[in-house]
């Protein structure tokens, strides 16, 4: 892979563009989108334990959605797909946010126990509420911006558990159908924002591989269901 002078401009790093693909809740929607773009995803849908696939002129790297900004910011992946919730939580990651992909629509909400005013009561009597969440920075920002004091407790697993056993007065979490909240006798108190899947790009790749990045972005844009 030698670089050479071609019509006055340098040939950039060759090799295939790397796209970070989120496993988990956005996995199906992402594979469906890639199918519509013309990237064969059969291998990813199979039982394979591989993490890296080559398909449709791209290297697809599969990972947790919350790792996508890390890989893309460092340039280990040129582009990536992840949820807006992840981007908001990691808002200090310097990546380009190129497209709203429309799928994976969810709401980030504050929820509390049904038929229980403890969220309001804690605020009134103690001047502060305790909030369990996987999104400590979004939760902190939300309560700060609305001028309320909150003690934010970060948990990694099922957030719904925290108010049930008294770890917290409420939670900040991503809600899709609301069934999980329902089953745990919780209800939505406030909506913070709505989230969908987003296409992101590394800053240097966005500049130095502009033509390829733009072409792929246009292809994906054409395949997004409005």
């Amino acid at each position: 892979m030698r670089f050479a002078e071609v019509s006055g401009s340098r040939v950039r790093e060759e090799g295939t563009l790397k796209l970070a693909v989120p496993r988990g809740a956005l996995f199906e929607g992402t594979l469906d989108l890639l199918d519509r773009v013309g990237v064969e995803t059969g291998e990813l849908r199979g039982e394979s334990r591989s993490l890296v696939f080559v398909a449709g002129g791209l290297v697809l790297v599969t990972m947790r959605p919350s790792d996508v900004p890390t890989y893309v910011e460092a340039g280990a992946a040129d582009l990536g797909i992840t949820g807006k919730d992840v981007l908001l939580e990691q808002s200090d990651r310097a990546v380009y946010e190129l497209l709203d992909l429309g799928y994976g629509a969810c709401r980030l909400v504050v929820a509390g126990r049904k038929d229980d005013q403890s969220l309001g009561e804690a605020e009134r009597r103690l001047g502060s509420v305790r909030i369990a969440t996987k999104y400590p920075r979004i939760a902190t920002r939300h309560f700060e911006q609305s001028g309320r004091q909150a003690e934010v407790v970060e948990v990694k697993g099922s957030v719904e558990l925290a108010p049930l056993v008294g770890l917290a007065d409420g939670i900040v979490d991503l809600v899709d159908t609301g069934r999980t909240l329902e089953q745990n006798a919780l209800e939505v108190r406030e909506e913070i924002t709505r989230c969908t899947a987003r296409l992101v790009a590394n800053r240097v790749a966005h500049k130095l591989r502009a033509a390829e990045v733009d072409a792929l972005t246009e292809r994906i844009k054409g395949a997004v269901r409005r």
Binding site: E13, E73, G75, A76, R203, V204
Partner: peptide, 26 residues
Amino acid sequence: DLGLLRDLGYYTGAIVEVYDPAVGHV
């Protein structure tokens, strides 16, 4: 690059940023 912006407040007119294809940061 007509999309270039820098975060320091004193720039007027031309601004530059440096990239190398081997690394992902500026």
